[in-house]
Simulated scan of single mutants.
Amino acid sequence: MTVTNDDLDRLWKVLRPMGWGAVALVLLTPAVAMRFTNQVNWTASDFVFAGVLLIGGGLAIELVAWRVGNPVVRIGFALFIVAVVALLWAEAAVGFLH
């Protein structure tokens, strides 16, 4: 079975709303959890950091997707940005690089 550019374009059209939905879910989860438990204690600066990191990563992906026509490059760049955001998030959470 050969994967065509049309197949990758259809995949991209499915992944975009899923990605923005994931950003919203990640930002809403601690807000909801803080209503039910004291073990989650995010400050306003935590939400700002998470928002800038996640929305900034999403906007970087959108910018490249808008400028680059090749769907393979789009998906590869999106995976790269997701990996960078995950690394920065993990470093901010536990500081494993220190």
Rank of each mutant, 00 (worst) to 15 (best):
D9H: 14
G58E: 06
L8Y: 10
I75A: 07
M18N: 10
T2M: 12
T2I: 13
L87P: 00
T4H: 01
H98C: 03
V48Y: 07
W66N: 09
I81F: 03
G76W: 00
W89P: 04
Q39K: 13
V26D: 00
A78M: 12
V23H: 01
V48E: 08
T43N: 04
M18K: 08
T43M: 06
F77L: 13
A31S: 13
R10K: 13
A60Q: 09
I75N: 05
A93L: 13
P71V: 03
E62N: 14
A65W: 14
V84H: 04
A33W: 12
N41C: 09
D46G: 01
A24E: 01
L53K: 04
L25N: 05
R74H: 02
D46Y: 02
A90E: 11
A83M: 12
F80K: 05
N5V: 00
D9L: 08
G57E: 07
D46A: 08
H98T: 11
M34V: 00
V82H: 01
T43A: 11
L8I: 11
Q39A: 14
R35Q: 15
A65D: 12
V32K: 00
R67V: 09
V52T: 14
V68W: 06
R74E: 05
N70D: 14
L8S: 11
M34T: 07
A65V: 01
G19F: 15
